[in-house]
Design a protein around this nucleic acid. Structure first.
Lengths: 194, 194
DNA sequence: GTCTATATTTGGATAGAC
DNA sequence: GTCTATCCAAATATAGAC
């Protein structure tokens, strides 16, 4: 038999999370307040404590949800089977996903809230996302861990610059394909020892 | 005749700034409080207002000072005259300068404090730093504005990943030379139309 | 489960004495 | 120029009624 009680509860938690993201987007992740979230969801601030034990717990749930959404959306990116093309698609997706929502980038990829660190559960999903990128790289024949680190630096760097210095624009995101080509060429045709 | 009054004053401002950086380093840039700064400098919080009109004004002074220190330290980097070698040195310097002090990176390269934006004076120094990098690129024969953006993304990406995911280590900073080689090779030997 | 009321803390900022 | 005292606002969190 269905547990309507539990369904309702998780539904409300979803509403709160959605409201939290909206507030974070508008005020910055550090500027998000329980008052703002409560108002957006039509509650009084104390009521939120029935669902999340603290503000940090809410941050944590947002973090985990963010990475789950990342993975879910990532699976929707259509792959062609051509390695370089697919790698480009993944990186473009990464940039879209995060530049589209700077608060998400801050919470998931940085340490914007003094004192807050994601729980192990939330961290695990992030690791999963990194592992997916590693697998993608392996598909195109790149196995060097340093290459993976270089690619994450390149990706987050583009996202970060885009968000910080040209919000809403495409000054950096439009360099995505070129960046991947540069990266790919470097990994597959190293200058050293050739 | 020397204005001892003014000298004393600017000296004290320097002390406050130094204390502010220490607090920011310890608590995160967003966790910096006037109380903490005052205690570190041996004052009561209200006394700070004789020197800085608000917390944001203090942030702004820190930002400007940070970029000035960046430029000053940058000038000390010894140049060989060999384009690629010198570019590597600049980027290594950039990474050292910022990973050495994450709070500095946050304040100077990101938007970590909701509501705070650097004043035009402070921003001007940042622009100067970017201009210096542009000139450096021109020296090695690279004039494409997109290339400059790509290099800033690469640099900040390495710094960001280093600070966020391996603080105190060198997992990303050690990739600096390789990153510059990759970048340089890409700019000087483009695949397209060759 | 949600509310009102309130506790608690904290931090930025001002007033005015010295 | 620095202090004490204080204000004000905001935000997290708890207690207890309904």
């Amino acid at each position: 038999m269905r547990d309507r009680q539990a369904e309702r509860r998780s539904e409300t938690m979803g509403e709160i999370l959605r409201a939290a993201w909206q507030v974070a987007e508008a005020e910055g992740i550090g500027g998000m307040t329980l008052k703002g979230v409560a108002r957006k969801v039509g509650m009084q601030p104390p009521s939120l404590y029935s669902y999340f034990g603290s503000k940090f717990a809410l941050y944590d749930a947002m973090s985990e949800q963010g990475w789950r959404q990342f993975m879910a959306a990532r699976r929707q990116v259509s792959m062609t089977g051509e390695p370089l093309t697919d790698l480009k698609a993944i990186i473009r997706f990464f940039l879209d996903f995060f530049t589209q929502n700077p608060a998400r980038y801050q919470l998931l990829c940085q340490r914007p809230v003094p004192g807050f660190e994601p729980s192990t559960a939330s961290y695990a999903v992030a690791v999963e996302a990194l592992e997916a990128l590693r697998a993608q790289l392996a598909d195109v024949g790149i196995f060097d861990p340093g290459a993976l680190d270089l690619l994450t630096a390149l990706s987050t760097g583009l996202a970060d610059q885009q968000i910080s210095n040209d919000p809403g624009g495409d000054r950096w995101t439009r360099l995505a394909d070129e960046a991947v080509e540069m990266f790919y060429a470097h990994q597959t045709h190293p200058r050293k020892g050739e």
